[in-house]
Design a protein around this nucleic acid. Sequence first.
RNA 1: CGCGGAGUGGAGCAGCUGGCAGCUCGUCGGGCUCAUAACCCGAAGGUCACGAGGUUCGAAUCCCGUCUCCGCAACCA
Length: 645
Amino acid sequence: MEKEKFYITTPIYYASGNLHLGHCCTSVYADSLARWNKMLGKDVFFLTGSDEHGQKVAEKAEKAGLTPQAYCDNLVKNFYELWDILNVKYDKYIRTTDSEHVECVQKIFKKLYDQGDIYLSKYEGWYCTPCESFWTESQLKDGKCPDCGREVKKQEEEAYFFKLSKYGEKVKEYILSHPDFIKLEGTKNEMVSFIDQGLNDLCVSRTSVKWGVPVPFDTKHTVYVWIDALPNYISALGYLSEDEANFTKYWPADVHLMAKEIARFHIIIWPAILMALGLPLPNKIHAHGWLTQSGVKMGKSLGNGFNPYVLCKRYGVDAVRYYLLKNGPILGDAPYDNESFLKLINTELVNDLANLLSRTSAMLVQNFDGELPKLSNNVLDIDKVLTDEVVNLTTEVSKHMQNLEPNNALNSILKVVRLANKYIEDTAPWTLKEDKQRLGDVLHNLYFVLHSVAVLMQAFTPQTAQKILEALKDTNAELSTISNEYNLKIFGNKVEKTALYQRLDIAKEIQYLEVDSLKETDKEEKMEDEETLKHKPNINFEDFEKLEIMVGKILTAEKVENADKLLKFNVKIGAETRTIVSGVAKHYEPEYMVGKNVLVVTNLAPRKIRGIESAGMILYAYTNDDKEFCFVTPEKEITDGALVG
RNA sequence: CGCGGAGUGGAGCAGCUGGCAGCUCGUCGGGCUCAUAACCCGAAGGUCACGAGGUUCGAAUCCCGUCUCCGCAACCA
């Protein structure tokens, strides 16, 4: 009989920088599902990879003085390394720069073009000549190029478009008629309402971006991300290649796993492409939440992504895996902080699990010289309650994993671990020194709990599971061993007293993570930051002289209606008083600003903002991530109207 | 009237196909000594954002209204 297949994917991560703890969530999550389904005996195919094309990658490469390909090759090594450290065991790693992928993309593009789902048209945007870049209206910064700050002009670019509009309704129908397609109700609603707003055709090529897959029949174009990145899920299986065996076998995917910011691409665009190709849609798409820090998405750009390397190195891979799977954003967002991470490891992994192994193995060594005694047939109710829970655990875990909920699976496992600790309390083995048979039974049952827990935990924390099995001298780790029959059969294994994990000193570790470790990691981060620190082109003195900056005193400050970020000021500058609007409401209460001396650019052309004419600009200092922000004020009291230069 | 998500004991979350409000951490009290100051038991603590709103025998759970918070969008000289 043919084995049931299980095809699961993570997104292909963008190769423009190193990965952070958020990426680890998705990959470890997918890995646990892959491992579990393997344990169930399924023929599993687990795909991950990297998205390596596009403008951003090309820019990064240039800055690093490398060709884009070399840049990607280097970076992807880090990706491999991270997954290796985290024990993420994928079956295939796809790179969008792989020749098989490139060919597949070209064939797909051609096919869609030939059948009329891709057509040539014009794409209108803002063009920055020096940067050779197109920007959309919303990307522009102050109406200028967000990269170099120079003027942009409206320009048309020839581009290919995918007829997304043609498939919107069909995708919607599919979503509505397949309740299991999207795991979260909220995501589903959002997608449907997005479709209801009406879909535009999708621009799927660029002439301005050189680093990409050339459009096969029109090579001045490169294929834009949608048709390049998304089809990785089928190109990796050999779709449209000479060997489609994997494709036939594994497609459609059983689970596409990702974080919620790319839900729309996977739930609307990707199905539309598949429909156009006449292919079946994936069975399930799950867009999980974000790992957040006080409500902010964790990410490289915010500089707050906790370094997975540091965490793994100091606390072990499984501590990180355990945390991500148990407390991670499996459904909605989940907050991360070091203290809760350390606490979780201490209470569940150390106090509950490791300690259970420790006390059980210690008693086996003390009373039976470490040799697991045979189970007698004198089964008490209290034994049965425990072993029933254990035997039932496989079903529980299975149910949760079917629902893509490793957090709940771990919860069920932990419950049994706690029950076992209670079992020790209730049976009080230390009072049974005289009754060797009863003592033997109790310890045997505890051994069975540990065995079963270790077997199940292979899907979540493989190293820990392995260590427990080794400590138990237990070689059979099949799921089927979690049964009363197996419990009866095992004996004689020579157990050693084992300490799985050491307790963490939480205060000390927080100190380490939040102070000491930063010294080490900051080096890299800083280099990265310096690399991205952009200076504007030099100006000469005459340019500078054009500026007029003066000291002003804020007389009044108030919020601007219908604008979250704007404050309106009346600023006294010498004899005159001006109205100036600034986007600083997030940073300052209006009352606080009143009476402050500030620096004002006074010869800036007035501009209307939200209907208010703003005559000048107040100067502020801020970091890139906007985390630090202040206004600039003279070092001591000085008469307003004073010149700055 | 932009789109969407969320408001549940000190913290973090679950429950939301309606039926005595649950989990982990924390706090307080007790027990045990096999174990990594770990483990076990008990207690305190919530009018489930608000509306003496609607439906119902019964609502955290469904409906209506209000407020607040968070993303995205807009604004940010």
